[in-house]
Amino acid sequence: MTPARVMIVEDEAITAMATGAMLKRLGHQVAASVGSGAAALEAFRRYNPDLVLMDIRLDGDMDGIETARAIRADSDVPVVFVSAYVDAQTRQRAAETSPFAFVPKPLDEYELGALMCRLRKVLPS
């Protein structure tokens, strides 16, 4: 399988580093790792990732759902929400962006590996 180029959008540095390390162990590349919606939009245009792992609570004015909405307006790149905030209202707002998945934190390597296997069908070869 060709490694996926994944953009991590996470405002907690330790969580972003752990996610990046898991992705690398699974054979994928971290295209970018950013902590705010504005930085995510800039990095998305610059690095053209195959997948976006998006937290919902972010630094700055835009949350992850607003950021995903902006990304999905111009692209069909899959967005996966990875968040501790899984209440019904948050899920409904997130669902409006047509995410590939919604995964609760904490994300573990086994779950991430399973997610990447599911994504294999929609990621570039």
Rank of each mutant, 00 (worst) to 15 (best):
17 M>C: 02
69 R>Q: 14
95 A>Q: 14
94 A>R: 13
110 Y>C: 09
14 I>M: 05
102 F>V: 09
60 G>D: 01
47 Y>C: 01
26 L>S: 05
53 L>T: 03
46 R>M: 13
69 R>V: 13
16 A>S: 04
30 V>R: 00
66 E>V: 11
16 A>N: 04
41 L>C: 08
92 Q>P: 06
50 D>A: 04
33 S>M: 02
100 F>A: 10
52 V>G: 02
43 A>Q: 00
39 A>D: 07
73 A>D: 14
20 G>T: 03
66 E>C: 08
84 A>W: 04
63 D>R: 12
30 V>E: 04
84 A>E: 05
55 D>P: 08
31 A>P: 02
92 Q>Y: 09
107 L>G: 02
84 A>L: 05
38 A>R: 12
86 V>K: 07
36 S>D: 01
39 A>W: 03
79 V>W: 12
66 E>I: 10
61 D>S: 14
48 N>E: 15
32 A>N: 01
15 T>K: 02
109 E>N: 01
100 F>R: 09
93 R>A: 15
95 A>E: 14
73 A>Q: 15
95 A>N: 08
98 S>P: 06
108 D>S: 02
22 M>S: 01
104 P>G: 04
106 P>W: 00
89 Q>E: 15
103 V>N: 00
24 K>Y: 00
17 M>F: 11
18 A>C: 07
110 Y>E: 13
101 A>P: 02
45 R>Y: 09
27 G>Y: 04
24 K>N: 12
67 T>Y: 10
72 R>A: 14
62 M>H: 13
16 A>D: 00
47 Y>G: 00
98 S>R: 15
30 V>M: 02
64 G>K: 12
58 L>H: 03
83 S>W: 11
110 Y>I: 14
57 R>G: 08
77 V>M: 08
42 E>M: 10
66 E>N: 09
78 P>Y: 11
100 F>P: 07
75 S>E: 01
103 V>D: 04
24 K>M: 12
44 F>A: 02
46 R>C: 08
90 T>Q: 10
97 T>N: 11
84 A>M: 09
107 L>D: 01
92 Q>V: 07
100 F>H: 12
102 F>I: 12
75 S>M: 06
65 I>S: 07
34 V>R: 03
42 E>C: 03
110 Y>V: 15
65 I>M: 10
81 F>W: 10
65 I>T: 10
79 V>K: 09
58 L>V: 10
96 E>F: 06
24 K>W: 00
20 G>H: 01
93 R>M: 10
59 D>M: 11
52 V>F: 06
93 R>P: 07
57 R>T: 14
75 S>T: 07
17 M>R: 07
78 P>S: 10
99 P>D: 07
108 D>E: 03
100 F>D: 14
23 L>E: 06
98 S>V: 06
25 R>Y: 07
21 A>L: 13
45 R>N: 13
77 V>G: 07
82 V>S: 05
90 T>R: 10
70 A>F: 11
99 P>M: 09
61 D>Q: 12
16 A>T: 01
25 R>T: 06
19 T>L: 03
46 R>N: 09
84 A>T: 06
97 T>G: 11
103 V>W: 06
34 V>C: 03
87 D>L: 04
43 A>N: 03
100 F>V: 03
81 F>E: 01
42 E>A: 13
90 T>K: 08
35 G>W: 05
27 G>W: 02
90 T>S: 13
77 V>S: 06
85 Y>P: 09
74 D>K: 14
81 F>N: 03
72 R>N: 11
61 D>F: 03
